[in-house]
Computed example of a mutant assay.
Amino acid sequence: MRIVDVCAFYSPQGGGVRTYVEQKLRIGPALGHEIVILAPGDEDAVIERDPGARIVTLKSPRFPLDRKYWYFNEAPRLHAALDALAPDFVEATSPWRSAGLVADWASPTPRSLVMHADPLSAYAYRWLGDVFSRQTIDRQFSMFWQHLRRNSRRYDYVVCANSDLSRRLDEGGVSRTVTIPMGVEANRFSPLHRDPALRARLLADCDLPESAALLLAIGRLAPEKRWPLVIDAVSMASQQSPIGLVMLGEGREQRTILRHIAGNPHVRLYEPERDRAAFARIMASADGLVHGCEAETFCMTAAEARASGVPVIVPDAGGAADHARGGAGRTYAAADVHAAAEAIRSVVRERPRPAATARTMDEHFGDLFAAYEARLRHRRAA
């Protein structure tokens, strides 16, 4: 198949979508498929990758709220690009405007809407959840629900990476939802990468001895990630035993988070580690990974921690919670700093080393593309 991913939020500067795209470009051709990423950018361009993999960009405006990204602003140009690419299957990988643009494309080509974002959890529930019930919030955001329901009827699949999101969408009347969990990069993460000397250096950076616990917090510096809650929870837990927190991330909330750290010598914020081998060593060398976001569609970093034999401390809602199952970590009541602190204390006290288990991205794409092939065969037979 030639699969075209209309990827509105791809940025070469990083992020979870970029990681997903890079693995799709590598794994898709190995499975016998041609992969084309169709993304907005500064100019019209074609970036060839390995045989059977390329990125095509359409000149588009920068996204005003985050200048690392662009957005499709001309439906006719997007539709013309799809006509020229002639895909066997097309994906829209953002639930926002591009979902409607792809749904409007006048072609019988089968298509899927891949939910790389959970906007209601990331924004509406987070902003208003302390005041209103979810049912009330859903009524107030009925236009977005209508947008999802309307578009879902024009897609063959609405693909979710966790069962909680699939359930909520299904209960909200969104048609054709399927759960196809993502996974980690194959043969990358392992407890064998644990490096005591690296762990000691990271704790020293936090002005702590090797006897202290080392926690990681990894991800974009964005409001929905709730990094201030994570910092506060670690500070509360560290009143009973010493804990160093190493944060790896970048984003528009960097100044806010640095102000929240307020010079605490036991908390360090660094840029992301882009060397994947070095990153795998850092992950395996920690005593736990702590996360604050209840709006994750999958939570790649928690999956990578699980594959590294590192316990996770995650909210009990959203995709992150899946990675704590089977004794692989602790969940806490989402958005509750005291519950998070107690979960951290439990992990630091027990220092568990859970078995390293993880689904791989090869398995994810194998299942995803098999679903596409089945739908394509059904369409052709009909």
Rank of each mutant, 00 (worst) to 15 (best):
E304Q: 03
L113W: 06
E43S: 10
S133E: 11
G309Y: 08
A328G: 02
R379I: 05
W105Q: 00
C7A: 09
T177K: 04
D66N: 14
R154Y: 15
A200M: 14
P352D: 06
D367Q: 13
S142F: 07
D83P: 06
F298L: 03
A286V: 02
M361H: 04
L221C: 09
F9S: 08
Y20M: 10
G172W: 02
A197S: 14
G16S: 10
P315H: 13
H291N: 04
G319I: 09
W127H: 08
E210K: 13
A382N: 10
R351N: 12
L192Y: 15
L82P: 00
E74C: 00
G173I: 04
R226Q: 15
S346Y: 12
A284D: 13
A103W: 00
V347W: 13
L208T: 15
L113Q: 02
P223F: 08
D195S: 05
M283Y: 02
C160L: 10
D170F: 10
P265N: 09
Y71P: 00
P87D: 04
S60T: 00
P311R: 10
A328W: 02
I282N: 01
A222M: 05
F365S: 10
I55M: 07
Q140C: 11
A213R: 12
A305L: 09
Y157P: 03
P76H: 03
E273N: 05
A280G: 01
R26Q: 04
G251A: 14
G318P: 05
R379L: 08
L208W: 09
T297M: 07
V6D: 00
H33Y: 01
A212C: 08
R139W: 07
S142I: 11
R62H: 12
P76W: 00
V348Q: 11
V46W: 01
I137N: 13
A92W: 03
Q13E: 08
G41K: 01
V184C: 06
A217Q: 14
V178E: 06
A222Y: 06
R359L: 11
R359A: 10
F9T: 14
A302R: 12
A86Y: 10
R220I: 12
Y69S: 13
R111D: 02
G244I: 13
G329F: 09
H116P: 02
Q23H: 13
